[in-house]
């Protein structure tokens, strides 16, 4: 089937088999940040944004992207570097395999929640598994990033 969609701001026209899932199409298009950790919508590694909303690309048919704006970490490199350096400074990047899906959901959370508490953060990101860190370092990095952003905003206002 022929589909048209926006991938990281670029209009894509391509063929996709009816049973192809979005995850495979995105990797085929060179978005290797999109990872598969399971086949059962449990791990969150394949998280991408569809019109700004986080979705599991393993559980969406490629043809469903028709007419939508898909964003992967390849399209958010500046943001990835900015938040990613907080993650790295905690040593919580570790093996890195879950990082892209985690970051995409963190970005969605930052859009959606104003001033989230630690509990809000854990709940929002509950679907993003990580086997290396025990999550504590990831949480620290988010809290420190939020504090940094807050201070940055205050400095801008002042």
């Amino acid at each position: 089937m022929n589909i048209n969609f926006w991938l990281n701001g670029v209009c894509i026209n391509c063929e996709a088999e009816p049973d192809m899932i979005l995850l495979d199409l995105l990797r085929e298009k060179g978005c290797y940040s999109v990872k598969r950790g399971c086949e059962t919508s449990n791990c969150g590694l394949c998280t991408v944004l569809m019109d700004g909303t986080p979705v599991l690309s393993c559980s969406i048919l490629a043809v469903r992207a028709e007419g939508h704006k898909i964003t992967t970490l390849e399209g958010m490199q500046k943001e990835a570097e900015e938040f990613g350096s907080f993650l790295a400074d905690e040593g919580a990047d570790q093996c890195g395999f879950c990082n892209p899906g985690f970051l995409m959901n963190v970005f969605a959370m930052l859009q959606e929640l104003k001033d989230p508490s630690e509990e809000d953060i854990l709940e929002y990101l509950a679907g993003n598994l990580c086997r290396c860190t025990g999550f504590a370092g990831q949480t620290r990095s988010i809290l420190k990033f939020l504090q940094y952003k807050k201070e940055q905003k205050e400095a801008d206002n002042a």
Partner: peptide, 8 residues
């Protein structure tokens, strides 16, 4: 780190 967190 930076390669990993930016999804290279």
């Amino acid at each position: 780190s930076m390669a990993l967190v930016t999804g290279k």
